[in-house]
Design a binder for these strands. Structure first.
Length: 283
DNA sequence: ACCAGCTCCTGCTTGC
DNA sequence: TGCAAGCAGGAGCTGG
């Protein structure tokens, strides 16, 4: 489901009910998701206070007062649902757990935070906070696309020598961390770059344009509360609405929205995944 | 080092 | 209406 803007949206919704609060009880309803949960996860969460909730790429990071950090990756279909006294009357609050509710954090103030993940591609792990960057899933991540480390020179260096299509290269989290299929398609359209172009054969000016396009599309999506496809919603139950701003994603056959362009959006498959682009104005 | 293909799992949509 | 195929926002692993 979630790419960087959706994860950031979840983080913003979750921070008020997690940061500074204590986990009174952790209910772990299966042995793991994509990977087994760490040993004694429930015990290591119980009684711990969450000091801060941050994000790295598509990972949520809850720093605990035990010196460990809870890492959460939502995979394709993961959701974090907040239920408590103040949300109990809302339509999305559910008294009975669904069969895909895998972990429930019962907060001391009565709020429940439920990790629901139908496809079970999600990840939860615990890792020492002072060595967090050594975690296997964080260690090789590229720069944050909205941070200072992401600029034309850095992206050009990361793409240099690569003959793979730029579309698939941008999905590689070592190049830039946090993009997924939707926002790569949208950023390439904004930059006017053809998704099949060899990653290492993009001129410096166009790499700079791509950096600007990536930043802009992510910022706009965050401002919109992310994109709602199928069933994504923010932790507070609000629906994102950036999907209405898609230029190309899931729009095969529709006219290219670029002013003056008479192209028609095409769908191709790259690396087994759908790519949407305008064959006329992306070169 | 790079890269294409496969894999995990469930559920929704599409087409016959 | 039923059923099977196809598709889905991720990313690690394998083998070339």
């Amino acid at each position: 489901m979630p790419e960087l803007p959706e994860v950031e949206t979840v983080r913003r919704g979750l921070a008020p009910v997690l940061a500074g609060r204590m986990i009174a009880r952790a209910e772990v309803r299966r042995a793991g998701l994509r990977f087994p949960f760490p040993p004694d996860m429930a015990a290591r969460l119980t009684g711990r206070r969450v000091e801060a909730l941050s994000r790295r790429a598509k990972f949520l990071l809850a720093a605990l007062d035990s010196g460990e950090t809870l890492l959460i990756h939502l995979g394709m279909s993961g959701r974090l649902l907040i239920e408590g006294a103040e949300t109990a009357t809302l339509h999305h609050a559910r008294a009975v757990p669904s069969r895909h509710d895998h972990v429930v954090l019962h907060m001391q103030d009565g709020t429940r935070i439920t990790f629901n993940d139908a496809r079970r591609f999600g990840v939860m792990d615990l890792w020492p906070t002072d060595r967090l960057q050594e975690h296997p899933m964080l260690a090789r991540l590229g720069p944050e696309p909205l941070g200072n480390g992401f600029h034309a020179k850095a992206l050009a260096a990361a793409l240099a020598g690569r003959r793979a299509p730029v579309k698939t290269a941008l999905l590689d989290q070592r190049v830039v961390a946090g993009l997924g299929n939707i926002y790569v398609c949208e950023a390439l359209w904004r930059a006017g770059i053809h998704p099949k172009r060899a990653a290492g054969r993009i001129g410096n000016q166009r790499v700079a344009a791509l950096v600007r396009a990536i930043r802009a599309v992510l910022e706009e999506a965050i401002d919109s509360g992310g994109s709602t496809l199928r069933d994504f919603r923010a932790a507070d139950g609000e629906l994102g609405y950036f999907q209405h701003a898609f230029a190309v994603y899931d729009r095969a056959g529709r006219p290219c929205p670029r002013a003056g362009c008479k192209g028609k959006i095409a769908r191709i498959v790259q690396g087994g995944r759908s790519t949407f682009y305008c064959p006329r104005c992306q070169r």
